[in-house]
């Protein structure tokens, strides 16, 4: 009796045919919307761009005949393009190690617990979370030759008036960009490295201390290997960001003086939206994608090896 009653109960709970179908297909149904959007906004423009890069579309002409690799051949003759890649490389090569080093030193400073540590951390996060445009604007205020505090401080230290046009003078534009960049992103490195350092097995450190290992030895033998994967991820994320640096330069120097601080992102923007070299811009885009793919793959390979 109880048996048949419960089976009836089970039957009542049985969902409709439609409900059952929706449940059977659930793994695909819930993937579909996201993938659709990604294809639409992610992949479709790339394909479109690929096609355009083989054509000859400019501001004045809508020439859709296929010209093969003409645009790509053009890339190799474009000195301004290679210069912009050089600028990007310079900024990345200087800013990334600096951020890593400063971030590591900050992490060392804050690794041990002390009262008020959380407040320091909350404050130090601030530069990283603000919009890069705001960061650029802030440093433009700071660097201003007449109304900014940097010149004032330098004058005070030097004991005589120091007048540096940070965002215009060719000798100082790169330091200006890198100072701003390092200011904004060292805290990012700091946060990641701090977390990584706190995850280092304390018993290993204690064992090393009992063994009488020196600080440098502990660092090299225990700490660095333990945090190496995090360093790799952090460098990958920041490296990719630095290669596409745009906002800070836009607000600080706008690529100037001349095109001295023009990065690859800025140059692509100029080609696309000032010169309206549609096809050529598409070709540059693919150069950038190819470059980043190579870098990413290399870094990921290194990370695999490190594991």
């Amino acid at each position: 009796m109880t048996l048949s009653a419960s089976l009836n109960g089970a039957e009542q709970r049985r969902p409709s045919r439609l409900g059952r179908m929706l449940e059977d297909r659930l793994p695909y149904l819930i993937v579909a919307p996201a993938i659709l959007i990604l294809l639409l906004v992610g992949l479709f423009p790339l394909i479109y761009s690929l096609i355009v890069s083989f054509q000859r579309i400019t501001m004045t002409e809508n020439d859709t005949t296929f010209v093969g690799l003409l645009n790509y051949a053009e890339l190799f003759r474009d000195t301004r393009l290679w210069a912009s890649l050089g600028h990007t490389a310079i900024i990345t090569a200087i800013a990334l190690p600096l951020e890593l080093l400063i971030g590591f030193l900050m992490a060392q400073l804050f690794i041990d617990r002390m009262p008020g540590r959380q407040i320091f951390l909350a404050l130090l996060v601030l530069p990283t979370v603000i919009s890069p445009i705001v960061a650029g604007a802030t440093w433009r205020l700071m660097f201003d030759v007449r109304f900014g505090p940097i010149g004032q401080i330098l004058s005070f230290i030097a004991g005589e008036p120091v007048r540096i046009l940070w965002t215009v003078n060719p000798a100082y534009v790169y330091p200006a960009i890198i100072i701003c960049e390092v200011w904004q992103w060292s805290p990012f490195m700091f946060l990641l490295l701090l977390a990584a350092l706190s995850n280092v097995d304390p018993s290993q450190l204690e064992a090393a201390e009992i063994d009488g290992a020196s600080y440098l030895r502990v660092l090299r033998a225990i700490v660095l290997p333990a945090i190496a994967p995090v360093i790799a991820v952090a460098c990958l994320i920041r490296g990719l960001d630095l290669v596409r640096i745009f906002d800070i330069i836009w607000t600080l120097t706008e690529g100037g003086p001349g095109s001295m601080t023009e990065t690859i992102s800025l140059y692509t923007y100029v080609q696309g939206f000032s010169q309206f070299e549609t096809s050529y811009t598409a070709a540059i885009s693919f150069l950038v994608i190819a470059l980043l793919t190579v870098i990413t793959t290399l870094v990921l390979k290194r990370m695999e090896l490190a594991r």
Binding site: L7, A10, E11, R13
Partner: peptide
């Protein structure tokens, strides 16, 4: 053919 919830 019954789901877990339908087996009581």
């Amino acid at each position: 053919d019954l789901r877990p919830r339908e087996r009581n």
